[in-house]
Design a protein around this nucleic acid. Structure first.
Length: 487
DNA sequence: TATAATATGATTAGCACC
DNA sequence: GGTGCTAATCATATTATA
């Protein structure tokens, strides 16, 4: 769609008019966003349509099923009504565009309520390609499961090993689920709608928090993290269920490893591909190498490493999110590598949409390039206040650019450089000024936990990773202050 | 001098087998 | 539960290049 759009503006206009939008609105939206930003245009047009249609206030909040999560909710937070304004418009548009109703409906469901039409169309194509791929490879690559030990997904994986008793001691190991789908990933077997272990009383109620780090950390690290965060069990999720990047992380509620010897490997693969005798073994080997070095097809017999633009897209960021401000390619790789996968985080945070329809106040620690903020925006949860702490200057610049591009009137972004400098008094002062925080979110440094670190994988007490304890300190201050403010 | 490319294992965990 | 295998991993230090 994008390539067509750049070749002919009128084609884009026609397309939207065919979808049933008024011509004036279409032209205005294209002027506002540029013809290539199909997603923004679509969202804007759907918002116009929503504003015009009668507001029937349908109440779809379905909090009954997961009352475990939010039993500490104050009554003022519950009085909200949610509707899904995009649903009908998108479905109708897709059917008009010639897609089968069933496929369109599934795609809308899986892309989420905030996805633009372009994104849903992408999903439909991807699903079609996946089906073709599966049919093609079904025979030779059938996984051999002959063990009676693992009945794969008949039972939720996290429930299998973790004893359903009181919280684990520091010494007890937290076992990683396999497959790593956490409490449940949409449309995957083993979907869980409730926590395997109920929230301890001390952790209940707002303000909420969201902590992230690498899943495969040295032994005992996650048990320690869990014990410091009210004994809540981590949810381990591999982002491969949300996007095309594998990224195993633990969340308490991969980056793409940079390929070594990329140039040599791409040349090697090109030479192999130019030969004629490509038997099955060679094919499989090539696929393995591409997977290992994060290579993508860029032309006939040619592979290349992922560009920052592509990683941006994989991780769910808007195009050019990390571009600009004189940032180098190396810095972009680094910043993106350290970031959240937006779709994954947005899936977790989607529960907040029901709770904060009028906006949310966020304390964002270790903000990086603003993965949490982008996720909230994707969910269309208005951000009233963001207090952000981020040590890297380039990352602060990236977040500020994002904020200035997207913010609405009256919203504030406060920036700090160092979590250690954000003392208890300052936090309380901020909370007095802004009326507290609704969410504390952050992933503390993984440098000393990550498997790729050959030099200083020294565990949670390492120079950088020990900043986790600052997350705990700040969260504790926020929660205590919030309790006092409620009283 | 700044940026890009390259070189550098160990620690996890799963699984089959015994 | 031990063993041997496979596979994967939010990195850092040094060297080459622009």
């Amino acid at each position: 769609t994008s390539s067509e759009a750049s070749s002919s503006k009128s084609k884009v206009i026609d397309q939207f008019i065919r979808m049933g939008f008024p011509e004036e609105s279409v032209i205005k939206a294209i002027q506002d966003y540029g013809e290539e930003n199909i997603d923004e245009i679509t969202n804007t047009l759907l918002n116009y349509a929503e504003a015009e249609s009668t507001n029937n206030n349908s109440n779809l909040s379905d909090n009954n099923g997961d009352s475990n999560h939010y039993s500490g909710l104050s009554s003022s937070d519950e009085e909200n009504e949610i509707n899904y304004p995009h649903e009908e418009g998108r479905l109708q548009a897709l059917i008009k565009m010639g897609y089968p109703r069933e496929e369109a409906s599934i795609a809308i469901e899986r892309c989420g309520e905030n996805a633009g039409v372009a994104e849903v169309v992408d999903f439909i194509f991807a699903a079609q390609m996946a089906r073709e791929f599966d049919e093609f490879y079904a025979e030779p690559y059938e996984p051999i499961i002959n063990s009676n030990k693992r009945r794969a997904c008949s039972e939720p994986p996290t429930r299998r090993r973790i004893p359903n008793t009181a919280m684990a001691s520091d010494e007890e190991l937290i076992r990683l689920p396999n497959p790593m789908i956490g409490f449940g990933v949409p449309n995957e077997p083993g979907l869980m709608t409730q926590r395997p272990v109920p929230l301890p009383d001390v952790a209940r109620g707002p303000p909420y928090f969201y902590y992230e780090n690498v899943a495969i950390a040295p032994k005992g690290v996650w048990a320690k993290i869990s014990s410091k965060l009210y004994g809540i069990k981590p949810e381990f999720v591999d982002s491969q269920y949300f996007c095309a990047a594998a990224r195993k992380r633990g969340y308490i509620h991969k980056a793409l490893p940079w390929a070594e010897r990329c140039a040599q490997m791409t040349n090697k693969i090109r030479k192999v591909l130019e030969k004629d005798d490509k038997n099955l073994f060679v094919q499989k080997e090539i696929i393995e190498q591409c997977k290992r070095w994060n290579l993508v097809w860029v032309g006939k017999n040619k592979v290349a490493p992922l560009e920052p633009d592509e990683i941006e897209k994989l991780l769910g960021f808007p195009k050019d999110h990390t571009r600009g401000g004189g940032i180098t390619k190396t810095d972009r790789y680094k910043s993106l590598g350290n970031s959240f996968q937006v779709d994954t985080v947005a899936y977790h945070l989607s529960v907040l949409k029901h709770l904060f329809p009028k906006g949310i106040k966020v304390l964002s620690l270790f903000s990086g390039i603003g993965g949490g903020e982008v996720a909230l925006r994707r969910l269309q949860i208005p951000m009233k206040v963001i207090v952000s702490v981020e040590i890297s200057e380039v990352n602060r610049n990236i977040l500020r650019s994002f904020w200035e591009e997207t913010k609405q009137m009256g919203d504030v972004l406060i920036e700090f450089k160092d979590v250690q400098a954000l003392d208890d008094h300052k936090i309380e002062e901020l909370m007095d000024h802004y009326g507290g925080f609704d969410l504390v979110i952050g992933g503390s440094p993984c440098n000393n936990l990550a498997g790729a670190n050959r030099v200083s994988r020294t565990g949670l007490e390492g120079d950088q990773s020990s900043l986790f304890f600052e997350f705990c300190r700040i969260l504790d201050v926020v929660r205590r202050k919030a309790a006092r403010m409620r009283r």
